[in-house]
């Protein structure tokens, strides 16, 4: 069974129907896949302060003992983790970005050459695939492409692949058409 974690980085109640439909799809049992939706705005997630404790003091563990523990566990037990965010100032929400910053405990400080570039060595053998779902009622292609390119780079840094990139308006219908089929 494919395990999927969706990190919902919608920061407010702007997409309540979409979120309700998403929760409904996740709750529907399927023999093929299991979806966990984590609503980031309900969690205590602090900003990365660049202290590097997770690299040099407590390897693999962030200095913040906050709700990211739930996120790390879910990601590392998934086959695919998906960052879901509305487009905000042409990029993802700061809630989503803050969560991404906190992923550095998943890699080592050590530098290796990967895909012909310098990157951090992976801490875990398991490398869940990565996905991106961007909500934008205007469906601005420039914002979608810029954001996808940045997350494509992040997938290289985490030594995985960005295997999903959806550009949605945020309607309920899209949840049934695009997400329930994952």
């Amino acid at each position: 069974m494919k395990r999927i974690t969706i990190l919902n980085g919608i920061p407010d109640d702007s997409y309540t129907e979409f979120e309700a439909a998403l929760d409904g799809v996740a709750a529907t049992e399927s023999p093929k896949r299991h979806i966990d939706v984590i609503r980031l705005r309900d969690l205590d997630i602090r900003y990365c302060t660049g202290c590097w404790d997770c690299w040099v003091k407590t390897p693999g563990l962030c200095a913040h003992r906050d709700d990211m523990q739930t996120v790390y566990t879910s990601i590392m037990h998934s086959d695919l983790f998906v960052l879901l965010s509305p487009i905000s100032m042409g990029f993802v929400s700061s809630l989503t970005k803050k969560t991404c910053d906190r992923m550095i405990p998943l890699v080592h400080p050590y530098i290796v050459v990967y895909k012909d570039e310098f990157h951090h060595k992976n801490r875990y053998e398991k490398r869940p695939e990565m996905g991106l779902i961007l909500l934008d009622p205007d469906k601005n292609d420039v914002d979608f492409n810029n954001t996808r390119n940045i997350f494509s780079r992040l997938s290289i840094n985490l030594q995985t692949d960005l295997t999903l990139a959806l550009h949605l308006t945020g309607s309920e219908k899209e949840v049934y058409n695009e997400i329930s089929t994952l």
Partner: peptide, 20 residues
């Protein structure tokens, strides 16, 4: 800003949102 996970740090993005 320093490059954090291939973009700006979350705090800097939070500032960009305040420019809305």
């Amino acid at each position: 800003f320093p490059l954090y996970t291939d973009a700006m740090p979350g705090m800097t993005m939070a500032f960009f949102e305040k420019l809305a």
